[in-house]
Every structure is written in structure tokens, then in C-alpha cells.
């Protein structure tokens, strides 16, 4: 894994590893167009963020994980 993958997928919940990622203040603004990103469905089919949001009048996306 490259450095960004290793640091992003930190192995311990310690401030020096997780705090660097908490950057909500610099996230895209309300009223802006969402940036495009490749994503995958659970069956590993490739899809993209723009394709997902184009399917409905409104789309809500919750970010998170098992932990």
C-alpha cells in the first residue's frame, strides 16, 4: 500500500493518526457541484458519484463504516 492508503487506513485510534483527516471545514460548500469520484457497489460493480446522484430527485449519502 502507498503512504496515503496506509495513513488513511490507520491501525490505531490515536490522535496523531486520526485527527489529520478531520477536515470538514475545507469540504465542498453547500450550493457547489459535488466533485466526481469512482465508487463501487457492494457486488464490486464500478459506479460513480455523479451517476448515483443523477438517479433520483434527491440523494442522501451517509458516510461511515462498521467501526
Amino acid at each position: 500500500m502507498d503512504d496515503i492508503q496506509t495513513r488513511y487506513n490507520y491501525d490505531s485510534f490515536v490522535p496523531e493518526k486520526f485527527e489529520q483527516w478531520l477536515n470538514f471545514d475545507a469540504s465542498p460548500k453547500v450550493g457547489a457541484l459535488a466533485p466526481e469520484f469512482p465508487l463501487w457497489q457492494l457486488d464490486q460493480t464500478p459506479v460513480s458519484l455523479h451517476t448515483i446522484v443523477a438517479q433520483h430527485q434527491y440523494t442522501m449519502i451517509e458516510f461511515g463504516s462498521f467501526t
Binding site: 471545514d25 459535488a34 438517479q55 434527491y58 449519502i61
Partner: peptide, 24 residues
């Protein structure tokens, strides 16, 4: 590498709503 998550601020459990055009 969490490219999408990082671009949106990397908070552990956030929610965003978009319209069909991709507007936030």
C-alpha cells in the same frame, strides 16, 4: 485511499444530500 471520503471532509459519520444535478 478514501478519495471521495477525504474530499468531503473525512468525518467518521457524516451525511450529505444532493440534487439530481449533483448540487450539494
Amino acid at each position: 485511499d478514501g478519495a471521495c471520503h477525504r474530499a468531503f471532509g473525512s468525518m467518521p459519520n457524516m451525511t450529505w444530500i444532493f440534487n439530481r444535478s449533483g448540487l450539494i
